[in-house]
């Protein structure tokens, strides 16, 4: 299952927001995967593994929220510093397409996790709606609506940033 390690790590990193927690989550997930390997009868090992990773991340996040730390706030705050230095020499030329990596990263980090995970799985991992539905344990219709709403919010955040910079 090691070929899926990058996918597992990427999902974890986007869900929990920092490297240390992501590595912990991946480590726990592989342990769990081994423990429950007997229960795996499907064909798509990647979806099965990512479902475990997702489950582990959410458990980790729930623990953190109990300690009063909102992960998406923390994730956004960790990027805040870099944002200050993100001055484009030509703000007018900034369009959605050319939004800086940092701006996109930050906007994505601010999305609610259920929208973020759908976008990460779709746009970065190239998964089908059916695979995403299997991983996130919701109907395909929900995947579609989460993707639509996630994209819309992201669009609004990125274009609002462009407007702010151009005025």
């Amino acid at each position: 299952m090691l070929p899926h390690l990058d996918s597992a790590h990427n999902l974890a990193r986007w869900l929990v927001g920092n490297e240390q927690d992501a590595e912990d989550a991946v480590q726990d997930s592989y342990l769990r995967a081994l423990t429950y390997f007997d229960s795996f009868h499907g064909e798509d090992g990647r979806a099965w593994l990512l479902a475990i990773v997702r489950h582990t991340c959410y458990a980790q996040l729930r623990k953190k929220v109990q300690h009063g730390l909102q992960h998406s706030e923390a994730l956004a705050a960790s990027l805040e510093l870099e944002m200050v230095e993100d001055h484009s020499p030509d703000p007018e030329a900034l369009a959605l397409r050319n939004s800086s990596r940092i701006a996109i990263e930050r906007a994505l980090a601010q999305l609610p996790p259920e929208f973020r995970e759908a976008l990460v799985l779709r746009e970065m991992e190239g998964m089908s709606y059916r695979e995403i539905a299997r991983i996130t344990d919701v109907p395909v219709g929900t995947v579609m609506s989460r993707l639509a709403r996630g994209r819309k919010r992201l669009q609004d955040m990125l274009t609002a940033k462009v407007r702010k910079e151009t005025t």
């Binding site: 090691l2 390690l5 990058d6 597992a8 790590h9 990427n10 990193r13 986007w14 490297e19 992501a22 590595e23 991946v26 480590q27 592989y30 369009a95 959605l96 397409r97 939004s99 990596r101 996109i104 990263e105 994505l108 976008l119 990460v120 746009e123 970065m124 994209r151 992201l154 669009q155 990125l158």
Partner: peptide
């Protein structure tokens, strides 16, 4: 364009250390 934007965000690969440990 939003899709392009998201795929431009970093895909965090597993570190060499994590891979090595596994």
């Amino acid at each position: 364009q939003t899709g392009f934007a998201v795929s431009a965000a970093p895909r965090y690969r597993a570190s060499k250390q994590l891979r090595a440990r596994l």
